[in-house]
Nucleic acid binder design. Sequence first.
DNA 1: GAGTGGTCTAGACCACACT
DNA 2: GTGTGGTCTAGACCACTCC
Lengths: 253, 253
Amino acid sequence: MSALASSNQEGEPQGPAFSPLYRQIKALILRSLQGGEWKPGEAIPSEVELAARFKVSQGTVRKAIDELATENLLVRRQGKGTFVATHAEEDIQYRFLRLVSDAGRRPAPTQREWLDCRRLRSPAEIARGLGLGPGDPVIQARRLLRFDGRPVVLEDIWLPGTLFKGLTAERLAQYRGALYAFFEAEFGVRMIRAEEKVRAVAAGALEAPLLGVSEGMPLLSVERRALTYGDKPVELRRGLYDTSAHHYRNELS
Amino acid sequence: MSALASSNQEGEPQGPAFSPLYRQIKALILRSLQGGEWKPGEAIPSEVELAARFKVSQGTVRKAIDELATENLLVRRQGKGTFVATHAEEDIQYRFLRLVSDAGRRPAPTQREWLDCRRLRSPAEIARGLGLGPGDPVIQARRLLRFDGRPVVLEDIWLPGTLFKGLTAERLAQYRGALYAFFEAEFGVRMIRAEEKVRAVAAGALEAPLLGVSEGMPLLSVERRALTYGDKPVELRRGLYDTSAHHYRNELS
DNA sequence: GAGTGGTCTAGACCACACT
DNA sequence: GTGTGGTCTAGACCACTCC
């Protein structure tokens, strides 16, 4: 028997149904992750250790970890241990970037150019998307991604100012590697999942020259809302993709 | 002990690594699904029954079914049984349609209009995508989807002629419900998963009037390749979406 | 109450990585 | 060899559905 909340004895009539033990364990592990007890890239305690700590069987811990692994919060490595997922991993970088060259290669941007980075008071729409009050400080940055020298992606990024204190254009320009790895290492902000809204739009007079296309040219507009633990939004992004030699790839199942 | 291929005793030096029992069970269940032993919507035998049939423990069958369930091939229903997934289910219809109204509603098309349906010899590009020889018979159909009366999606669909014998414009027009449910019920073809390539394009002179937009207007081009068992391609689709009041929604994780 | 999937346990053994 | 995750088993009990 574990020391955890046992089944559903009594309780309010409209109780939240029934939560199996392994989900309670999962919630505990999640809290440790969120609280930073184990840092991204580090190993968490072994299954037997956790089983002992929580006073449950190894199988129950396993099932909790299984779910966290399929949610990409943990990574299991046979023979080595279970590790906190990180955007710094070579093969996980640009995990959220769905852009692929028409030849099928999944390109890492060959060049990133920061065009702007400023702090300002949040416009109402941005504040709403980030769950902030209107007028709260936000950081806005703009960058251009090139593939094989050609500009393909123009992105505007909004971040909550309080979470990303000290973020400057210099530090952005300096960092090599994926942006989310940077956020993780420098600000302790982990992107867990994201939602995107994709549309076709016409290139505006301001953006067109940056992407090297003519005004009115169709571009892919990709609005992203990235979330961290507890589904808290921590980034808004609006990308304009030139899809004349690339496309947005998606798997349905 | 089971009667199945036991671990990796000897074998060719470059054996395919190691296949756990539950994966072999999974493969067997998959074969039965593919062979039509259980039809879409029907219940498969209970876990204990399958365990007896395959001479393994219930836990092993469970793990096999677990994987098939996460791949959306089976659906578990506590207390009732495990069922073969079907596109005919109310809440699974339009499972692959990522289009959402900007208000956030996930619309079932209020009207579907078939504009064309013909048999022809496959163009080279289509044949390649469907894994056919050039000149093999294919069916091409075109339809328009309306939401709240407004045309939003114009789709061209290509199907292998041999798999969809007897498909006519009349039968298409007659059927109510999702297209994939129709394919499943009438031709025994089950769509398992799909890949999509999304781009922004300009409305052409021919398509623009059908969608009620002006020529040159940016549209979302969605190319889909749908696969059945064994990753065999059985449908190509090219949709043009008017994204002025709708968008393509995607979840990243 | 009978049957189904869902949870939890305890223990044995296998595959893999490090040392 | 030791420790880690991965597989497999057998059995008990729980939650849900239907009769």
